[in-house]
Structures are given as C-alpha cells and as structure tokens.
Design a protein around this nucleic acid. Structure first.
Lengths: 144, 144
DNA sequence: ATACCTGCAAAGTCTTTGCCTTAGG
DNA sequence: CCTAAGGCAAAGACTTTGCAGGTAT
C-alpha cells in the first residue's frame, strides 16, 4: 500500500521547485500534515512522535514559515490561542466545525457555499488573491 | 442627534440584567465598540483615547471576559496574533474582508450565504448553539 | 565551497491571574 | 454592608530571533 506517499512526493517536489532543501525534517513535517488531514498547531507538530525526536521547535517553526511563504501551507485562526497550519492541496478546500467546549475540529463534508460570493467580492472590491476561511462553532454532542 | 446612545443604553441594560454592575469603564467600553462597529483587539481598546486614562488593561480584559460569558460580545480570530472582540447585536451578523498585507478589516455588505448550511450542519451533526465565522482574505487595492 | 538549515537559549508579544483596595447596589 | 469590580505587578502561553555550527547541493 502506497497510501499518501505519492502525494507527499508531489508536495516535496513543489518544495524543491520553490527552492527549499530536502531535509528529513521537511519530509516528515509534510507527511505528518498530510496524514492528519486536519490543521495542526506548532505544538502538536513539535510534539508529534514523528517529529519530536527529529528536530527542534524552532526548526518546525521556520519550516512552517517557509512553507507559508511558498504558498504550500496556510495558517488558520480557528479560535485557539495557537495558530493552526494546514496543507494547501489544490481542490481540497475545507471548512471546519469546531466544538467550543472540547476544541474538537472536524472538516465539513458539504460543499462550500461561499465561492460565488468570493467571486463577487473580488469583482466589486478590487481585492486580489482572495481566499476565505469558514468555521462553524458550537457544542458537540459529547459536550452537550 | 442621539446617534447610538439609545443602542448603547440597550446594551447596558442587557448588561445589568445579566448581573453586571454599571461602571464607567463598562459604559465607555460598550460605547467604544459600538462606535467603531468593527472588531477591536484588547490593545486597541486599552489604548483608545476614551479608555486609556480611564482604566487598566486588566480591567478591559475582565470586562471583555464577562461580556463574553453573558453572550454580549464575541471573540473572533481574524488571523492576527491578538484576539478581536465585537458586539453581538441581534440581526447584525457580519462577515469580514481582510487585507493580508495591511491588516485592514472591513465588514462585508452582501448577505451571508451560509445560514442554510449552518442549519443543515446543526441537523446532521447534533451540534448545538451553532454560529459561524466567515472571513475573506486577500490583498486590498492599496496594497496591490 | 557556500548558501541554506538547525539547535539552543533568550527575548518578544499578547493574555491571564493573584492579591489587595475600591465602590456599586 | 458585602460582593463585584479595579489597579498593579507578575506569571503564562505561544511565537519569534540571534548566533554559532552543521549539511544539502
């Protein structure tokens, strides 16, 4: 089973094209984000078994920074104190449903209803490179 | 011209009903948020001329905290390091357009296209007290 | 060889709390 | 009067950076 390996190779070659060096830390960071398929904080990444022994917090931080600059990942708010990071896989835009009690984050399956408005806004305001972030907050069934 | 005074009285009586004492700091905080009509950070509030001489950062912080508990304001992400706070005026839900370069935040006039999906999510997931946050990010005409 | 990457430790930024004093109802 | 609110100062949480040394290309 090859799982996401092909996908992570795609992303890693994107990294190379952007001028990043292929280090072990970069490889594992990308794989970790890909496997989780949900936004992760710097702390979650740093303490994740795959990265914990491999490299320092500052390294993860700087990797995330470079990946953001290159447009390979995106930083999200998600209402926590800490920032969340998620891979930008084309055609994989996600909105989220977040429990305000336990903090659980789940991606929403339904198609995002916002793209039409996004277009209109781009046209009417002159903003460029528009993207959006949509989150639903509430109390999950377990916490109710 | 009475401007928002009636409105701030509305909110202040809501505060009283929730058991908050009517202090000068509370009055001015509410008026400040109301006048700006756009989310503000703790720092912006604390340094705002109307509040700067009047009370301490910790006071503003605790006021915001209480107002959140009472459901009178809401905390937003908006991608900055600092949290933003906005009054929850019924029927005044707002989505935002934010410049990733200069940080300018402007409310979007167009009606929010998400309420239907919000309902569907509530039905299908069992989450309660759902609300959402929708932000568009891009480069504003000045920064392009 | 050299420009980029890393680790460590320290400094920043924003938030939150403890404790004692003040004042609203 | 008595409990919520405020001031001050210190502690937390998360992020960011400087510098010396390591490594992909």
């Amino acid at each position: 089973m090859q799982r996401d390996d092909t996908n992570s190779e795609n992303i890693l070659s994107q990294c190379k094209e952007s001028g990043l060096r292929r280090t072990k830390a970069l490889e594992v960071l990308v794989e970790t984000l890909l496997e989780r398929n949900s936004p992760m904080t710097l702390a979650e990444l740093t303490e994740h078994p795959s990265l914990a022994e491999l490299c320092d917090r500052a390294t993860v931080f700087r990797l995330l920074q470079r990946l953001m600059d290159k447009g390979i990942i995106r930083r999200l708010g998600l209402h926590e104190r800490a920032a969340y990071f998620t891979l930008l896989v084309p055609g994989r835009h996600q909105d989220f449903l977040i429990c305000t009690k336990c903090g659980d984050i789940e991606p929403i399956k339904a198609p995002c209803p916002v793209h039409k408005l996004e277009r209109e806004i781009a046209d009417s305001t002159g903003y460029e490179n528009l993207y959006h972030e949509l989150e639903f907050f509430g109390t999950c069934p377990q916490c109710c």
